[in-house]
Simulated scan of single mutants.
Amino acid sequence: MNYLINDRVTYDSLNGKLYILNDGEVVRLSKTLNRLMLVFVQNSNKILDREQLLLSVWQGHNQVVSDNNLNSNISVLRRYLSSFFDEDMILTIPKIGFKFSAQVVVEEKINLEPQNLNNKKNLLINNKSKKKLWFFLGLTIFSIVFILGFVYIKHKNYSVSYPIVGKIDQCIVYYINDDYKLDVKNFSENTLKEKISYLGINCKLPAKVYYYVSSISMRDDDKGTLFLSYCPETSKNQPVMSCETFYEK
């Protein structure tokens, strides 16, 4: 959060910085000094006893509690503030503690480049749209390949000229990669067995399984997309091959 001190100096509590807007001078505070400054700013014009400060700045953060630590950090903070203000901002109250004597206003963080942020937002939206476009394009191409494949199979009396990559029970397996080519090298029989079991596919009867895993994803954390088409063996008199297609992210 940002605080404006005496209508002059901005204090960025998140990053531990003191500066004047549009001025090159910036003071960077250590973590301890930043905690001390934040306590003062949040309690401006209030008297804080030494015990309060030691508890908030040191003891509450598992640091060594001592008057020497408090005194030395007060001294450093005063020196930093003196580079921005002529008067002493931290007043010593004898036998009690200290008071931060200043007018403090909470600032909303200034957005210096709203147009750039809008551009970034639009860029993210465009990137997501492009991913979705590629995803659906891939899905469309895959569907067309399968349809053409089935037409080809039909005209060839259901005989397939492609090599078989494996067989699970009575299911003959064909694995297709992103280039829509049969891929023996990257085929994992164990992975496919798990998917077949999960999807409840019956491989106890003769069938053909077309297995395709795409690397196209709609989100950065997606692992890809699985397409699996299960085509039970049909009789020669049946005019159309009946297949069930599964899609899973």
Rank of each mutant, 00 (worst) to 15 (best):
N2K: 12
L4W: 06
D7C: 01
R8V: 02
Y11L: 07
L14E: 15
G16F: 08
Y19F: 14
E25S: 09
E25K: 14
V27I: 15
V27Y: 13
R28H: 14
R28N: 15
K31N: 11
L33I: 00
N34C: 11
L36K: 00
M37G: 02
L38E: 07
S44N: 14
N45K: 13
I47P: 10
L48F: 02
R50I: 09
L53M: 05
L55I: 10
S56Y: 03
S56I: 02
V57F: 00
V57A: 00
Q59T: 05
Q59K: 13
G60I: 03
N62H: 15
V64T: 11
D67R: 01
N68G: 06
I74E: 10
S75F: 08
V76Q: 07
L77P: 05
L81A: 06
F84D: 02
E87L: 10
L91Y: 08
P94T: 01
K95T: 11
G97W: 05
F100E: 02
A102S: 15
V105S: 14
V106P: 05
E108G: 08
I110F: 09
L112A: 09
L112N: 09
Q115H: 15
Q115D: 14
K121A: 13
K121F: 13
N127V: 12
K131S: 10
L133T: 11
W134M: 13
F135A: 11
G138N: 13
I141G: 01
V151I: 14
K156S: 14
P163I: 03
G166E: 02
D169P: 02
D169Y: 05
V173Y: 01
V173Q: 00
Y174D: 01
I176W: 10
N177Y: 07
D179F: 08
L182D: 04
K185A: 06
K185N: 09
N190L: 11
N190M: 07
G200L: 04
N202G: 08
C203D: 04
K208R: 15
V209G: 08
S214Y: 08
S214L: 06
S214N: 07
S215F: 06
I216H: 04
M218C: 07
R219N: 10
D220I: 06
T225R: 11
Y230W: 04
Y230M: 00
C231K: 00
C231Y: 00
C231V: 03
E233H: 00
C243T: 03
Y247N: 04
Y247T: 09
E248P: 04
E248K: 11
K249W: 08
